[in-house]
Simulated assay, not measured.
Amino acid sequence: MSTFARSASVFDAFDHLATMVAVIDLRGQCAFVNAAFENTLGLPRRHLQQQCVFDWFIQRSVLMSTVQAVVDNEYSTGRFDASLRQPHVLSQEPLPVHVIVTQIERSQQQVLLEVVEIKQQARQDRETRTLDQARMTKELIRNLAHEIKNPLGGIRGAAQLLEMDLNDKALIEYTQVIIHEVDRLQGLVDRLLAPHRRPQMVADVNIHEVLERVRALVLIECPKGLELVRDYDISLPEFRGDREQLIQAVLNVTQNAAQALAARRQEGSARIILRTRAARQITIGLHRYRLALELHIEDNGPGVAAEIRDRIFFPLVSGRDGGSGLGLTLAQDFIQQHRGTIECESEPGRTLFRILIPLP
């Protein structure tokens, strides 16, 4: 058995960690690199093992000197903040990380390199808060909708009875206003309750069939001035899910993007990108998944207003006049029913909705 094979078998447990771990020597050559490193750098480990680890970091000299000091036993553990290059992933910006270099027992030539994404813990905390908030919001919606629904029927019935006894057309117009507004509120309540009434229809789902359906519907609504770009990873496997729920979730997000691009559509420069990728060793909430679908819906619109950016998935929060504020709430609910998560990053000229769904 080769030295590498023996080393790999010893360190295989590191593949189950969410943090990036590598075993390296003084020259920066890898004896082992775990799955989290593969996912973060966007390259298979056999390729990573042929590279010099020092080249992955902008602070190359700092890492080299720290490794040398640990090997020379000047100290057992060295720590520093650094920037990790990501040339082969969707976001090519350097990733802020905290680096830990530790001695390995019974090894004088190798050290353990642990790299922790600085934003990782913050993101996990944010996802946990989002899931808790969504559960509380759904419970509040159900209770509130039922409390509203019952008196609405009584109000509508009373208005109809009153209308039957009126002979004055002007007064009848008032009862018609009451009935019309009650029906509008009834429709809103029904939309709030709809996700909780219909059971999931689970079957094998191809995400690209879902996206093609959404793409066709949006282009029918916006036939001019909008470019809908496909950027698909066709190797993604099918998964079990509710096709109609996923279509509705993606459609709600994409329609919002198309509506936000109204000015650019008139100029003929509006663009929405539908992008799919495989994400490995992903943590969603408190669960770790070996493989997940990463779906991006990106537009070149004006961005989400800063005052509602943190509340964009809350019910009845809308960034446009006439919006119900339910589209993104329903999208979040449908994605969470698939054990997934949805989040938004926005700035003027670029808004990105990122959906993660576990894959088998």
Rank of each mutant, 00 (worst) to 15 (best):
G153H: 12
Q259K: 14
V218H: 05
G241N: 02
P199T: 05
D233V: 00
P302S: 10
I179T: 15
D72V: 01
R240P: 03
D165Q: 13
Y289M: 01
P237Y: 04
T351K: 08
L359Y: 07
L17M: 13
P358G: 14
E147Q: 15
P223L: 01
D299H: 02
Q336C: 01
L26H: 14
R213Q: 13
E93P: 00
V202S: 04
I282A: 08
Q336N: 12
V317G: 03
G285Y: 09
L166D: 04
P87Q: 06
E173T: 11
V101A: 03
R265A: 03
P87K: 09
C30G: 08
R264N: 08
P348D: 05
I148Q: 12
R197G: 09
H338R: 05
G327K: 04
Q248I: 06
V177T: 14
L192T: 03
T175G: 01
F32L: 04
Q281V: 11
R184L: 11
P315G: 11
F54S: 05
N167D: 13
R280K: 14
E105Q: 11
V229N: 00
R198S: 10
I234V: 11
L43M: 15
E343P: 00
Q68N: 13
V182A: 15
V71E: 06
Q337L: 11
G187A: 02
N167H: 09
T175F: 07
F32A: 00
R129P: 00
E139I: 06
D321K: 12
F57D: 04
F80V: 07
I24L: 07
Q200P: 02
R6E: 01
L144A: 14
A13Q: 02
R156D: 14
F37C: 04
V99S: 10
Y289F: 14
I284S: 09
E267Y: 03
M201V: 12
D165K: 09
D132Y: 06
E139H: 08
Q186G: 15
I284W: 10
R126N: 08
N143R: 14
G340A: 05
A170L: 05
P151S: 08
V253S: 05
R277C: 02
Q120D: 10
L48T: 07
V101I: 11
G187W: 03
E298Q: 14
T175V: 06
L228P: 08
W56T: 06
L328Y: 02
L95Y: 06
P223S: 02
D310F: 05
E307H: 15
L144Y: 12
